[in-house]
């Protein structure tokens, strides 16, 4: 569904992604693992063209999206949930959802405001509040809900478990598993191996913008040296 080949991205002169290759199949939940600065966020931004890769190719459903503007990529069915959440804090929760609204598509689950409020009941209670006065967990729910309003086929979740309470993390894991049941494809970047193992089918490990591992969690457990080299602090 998503193919990344020989991708190179830079911030100024800093080389962040180095000839990165991987592919994602329909219906998979893939965890992008690695330490801070390994290139997880840049990978997601490069897919969305929020960072413009110097070379390489990203294709989605067989079409090259490398030179498309972000809004066209989003309209093709890629939903991006940024790590910093980027809630529109001057807008109410309902208005935040409205910004994300796009047409329904046949080959992806269709979301309505009602369905999302059912999924995240906390948001319903505060639907007319502005985004300012929300807890980290609520913000994270709103960010995900806002992106789902675009009825994406592939969800890019950047560190969803970061900075939220453990109870909410558990809830988040259930939610992601539910997305999978609905047929959504998900790429999730994580530092929390435990969380990743619960929700994902496959792990891709990045280090200095290079792919160091690509396989199942069982494979990863059988290669403790890889885990020690690229994941432990």
């Amino acid at each position: 569904m998503l193919e990344i080949s020989a991708l190179n991205s830079f911030y100024g002169k800093a080389h962040i992604l180095n000839d990165l290759d991987f592919s994602i199949n329909r219906g998979e939940v893939v965890a992008l693992l690695g330490r801070n600065g390994a290139g997880k966020t840049t990978t997601m931004k490069s897919i969305m063209q929020l960072v413009h890769p110097k070379s390489g190719r990203v294709s989605f459903d067989g079409a090259d999206i490398t030179s498309l503007p972000s809004h066209k990529i989003a309209r093709l069915g890629l939903g991006y949930v940024p790590e910093e959440r980027r809630i529109f804090s001057d807008l109410t929760i309902l208005e935040n959802l409205e910004v994300g609204r796009q047409k329904a598509r046949k080959d992806a689950p269709v979301w309505t405001v009602e369905a999302l409020f059912e999924l995240f009941p906390n948001l319903w209670e505060r639907r007319n509040n502005r985004g300012k006065a929300m807890s980290g967990g609520e913000q994270q729910m709103l960010t995900i809900a806002r992106t789902l309003m675009g009825n994406p086929k592939l969800l890019l979740l950047d560190e969803p478990s970061e900075g939220i309470a453990p109870v909410i993390v558990e809830q988040m894991a259930k939610t992601i598993l539910r997305f999978k049941e609905e047929g959504l494809t998900v790429i999730i970047s994580e530092q929390n191996l435990h969380f990743a193992r619960i929700v994902a089918d496959r792990a891709i490990i990045l280090e200095s913008g290079e792919k160091k591992f690509d396989g199942t969690f069982t494979d990863l457990e059988n290669q403790p040296d890889i885990r020690d080299a690229y994941l432990s602090v």
Binding site: M48, L50, P69, S70, H71, A74, R75, Y80, P82, R86, F88, S89, D90, L91, V99, G100, Q102, R146, T147, G150
Partner: peptide
């Protein structure tokens, strides 16, 4: 507030 994010949500 954040025009880049608006773009990433599919708004031209």
């Amino acid at each position: 507030q954040d025009r880049e994010m608006v773009g990433a949500l599919g708004v031209n």
